[in-house]
């Protein structure tokens, strides 16, 4: 006697297997994800042709830079950075801050910051990058605000398959000051 339940069970098993394959299949862009290198505050991190140390992070109600001043919700990040292999086209132009589901690019408003600065091989530059956030974005307890900032640094505007250096800063550790200086770019140690 033909076991009529066999095709039904086999069909259900195939459907379950198909669901399983779909569930474990990586996302379409997963093959192009950047290579993330951890860059804790105070520690030098190295990626493709880029070395960088985050030396300080603080939130501020106002920022000043070379005579320029702006009020708002700011995060200022002090960095030291250099190229490690070659100088041609080597600019610190991928600088982002992720907070919750939003990603912010470093501000172009400060006249003299490390954002977009050309990097020398073996001669580190020091300066700051600054992020201008929506009002209240950093408020503790705000809906959807996670407990950390995620900073990312790289050389290419397109970070696919490139290395990015990532610094995580718990919001509890974030110093809040009234006014912060965006340090003008200079040689590190000078």
């Amino acid at each position: 006697m033909t076991r009529r339940w066999v095709p039904a069970v086999a069909g259900a098993a195939l459907v379950a297997a198909a669901w399983g394959v779909t569930a474990v299949t990586p996302a379409e862009d997963s093959a192009e994800q950047p290579f993330v290198v951890a860059a804790p505050v105070g520690m030098r991190a190295e990626g493709r042709n880029l070395a960088l140390t985050v030396t300080g992070v603080r939130a501020a109600d106002a920022v000043v830079n070379e005579g320029w001043r702006a009020e708002g919700e700011w995060v200022v990040v002090d960095v030291e950075s250099e190229a490690t292999r070659m100088e041609t086209g080597t600019l610190l132009q991928f600088v982002t801050l992720r907070l919750g589901g939003r990603t912010y690019r470093a501000s172009e408003r400060p006249p003299d910051s490390m954002f977009g600065h050309p990097l020398s091989v073996g001669l580190p530059s020091a300066g700051s990058v600054a992020f201008e956030l929506p009002e209240g974005a950093l408020d503790a307890g705000a809906a959807g605000v996670p407990d950390e900032l995620v900073l990312r640094f790289g050389l290419n505007l397109d970070d696919r398959l490139d290395s990015v250096l990532e610094t995580r800063v718990p919001l509890d550790d974030l110093e809040h000051v009234g006014e912060a200086e965006i340090a003008p770019v200079d040689w590190a140690g000078s």
Partner: peptide, 19 residues
């Protein structure tokens, strides 16, 4: 022109006229 290390880490520098 660009300058290259032939030994060591074989790094490359651009000319520094603007700098």
């Amino acid at each position: 022109p660009t300058l290259l290390e032939t030994g060591g880490e074989q790094r490359q520098w651009d000319q520094s006229g603007i700098l």
